[in-house]
Nucleic acid binder design. Sequence first.
DNA 1: CTGAGTCGTCATTTCATGGT
DNA 2: ACCATGAAATGACGACTCAG
Length: 465
Amino acid sequence: MSKNIWLLTEERPKKAVIQAILKRFCAEFGVEYVGDIKILPVISPEGRFQFRYKVIGFEAELVKEIFILPVSGYSSFVDFMLFYQDEQPTDKDKPLLLIEETKTDDVESRNTGVYQRCSKFVFTEFFYPNVQKIMLYNRQIPQKVKPTLTYIFGTRMLLTLDVEIIGKSLDPEIFRPFSRLDELIDLKNSMPKPYNGVPVRIKKEQDKIYISAKLEKAGRLAHDPNIGMVAIMAACIRKLGWSGEIIITKHGLADQSVVGNKNKFNFIAHEHEIELEGITLPNVTLPDKYWKVEKEKEKAGTIFVHVICENLVDGVSIYENHGGSERGYFWDHSTIPPMYEAVKKYTNREEYKSGNKEAIVYIPDLVLLDVKRNEIINIEGKTYKNRLKGVQELSNYVYFELNYIQHYYKDSKLAVGLVLAGSGNAEVAKQIPELILYLDDKGNITLGDRAPQLVKDAVEKLSSL
DNA sequence: CTGAGTCGTCATTTCATGGT
DNA sequence: ACCATGAAATGACGACTCAG
């Protein structure tokens, strides 16, 4: 047996994470994982990017080729879906693995470390029932030795839904699925009450279960950790056989108007029949599709540049922020091993808090180091549509350049420019003096006249792939 | 086309206070 | 004084949607 692997993701394909997933895939078939990998774009004979990447360097009889397919979800989307089949997946196909990744450990945050991502697994179950689900802890720090009750409770709920935990070692005596509803209720209710906030408590009556949990954030139904927590509690309660009512109390939501319509919680509440005390939830139906192939978003461009510069030429990423939510580190590669520093959010925190929104640190989307030429390339990513906004933003990075780039790379040259993506006119894009590269929705690649040599070299090499 | 509001994402930091 | 812990607050930012 030998098929292709397709990895669908909204994120930049990171080598370490891809390797962890391939390792897990191998375990599924009892095979040893071997190989150091490279990630390359797939280019047509006419030189167009095919909106998929190819992983090379992985040798196993099970696998013909490994492709990474950039996608976007219509609502709550897991970090990776793995399909094991020859044809490019469509929404009719069923994945082999669903993978959610996090860096947060128990010691950094109790609730966001375990609850915040739970809604993903509950949500995907509606689209892909009984597919193997995986929580991948991609920790940067050592695992906390003694787990907190919050972590134990959350993880046992994940195990109850057959989610597999990798990247952490778990004592099987403590971390086991709940087998009875009362076991789950008793554990939560036995936890010490917090010194502030709404204590989460479960009260079971004849045909009603009440869960107290705050769901309001900034006046709306948007309290992420608790949305995840309530979602998985309800899913577990249903799985353990409860068919009575589940009612959320002390949620802090004023009235229906703040509940919204297409909120992911509404879908979950609808499927698992969760009620909010004093509020009638909208009657929603799930989106009919879970994902689509992505060719238009701004990160299509920056990810493409990132991948080709790291895998085809001597480029190294020293800062990345594709999409804006992940933790941003600035890397100093002049030391061995390289050191990183978390980039500050404000030039002056007090000033920002007291209303001066200028006191923020403007950050670029991607910063590359051309090792051979000792040149830094500071990149802002934008859609073609927003290209002019992008040009304006290039002048915002003075603080970042001064305090990070030039601080750590004193003797390096600095280039600044724009990477565009999405449908548009290549001739118009080429007129922009700051243009480094433009990747349109057909996969055409246009280099800016003043693009740094690193990017030019990388594009040059594409023709030989 | 523009701008305001909504939504999803994810990590970091803070709060309040009992225990050591 | 400091640590641990359940829970909340903060906040950046792109993608959408919708009114005007």
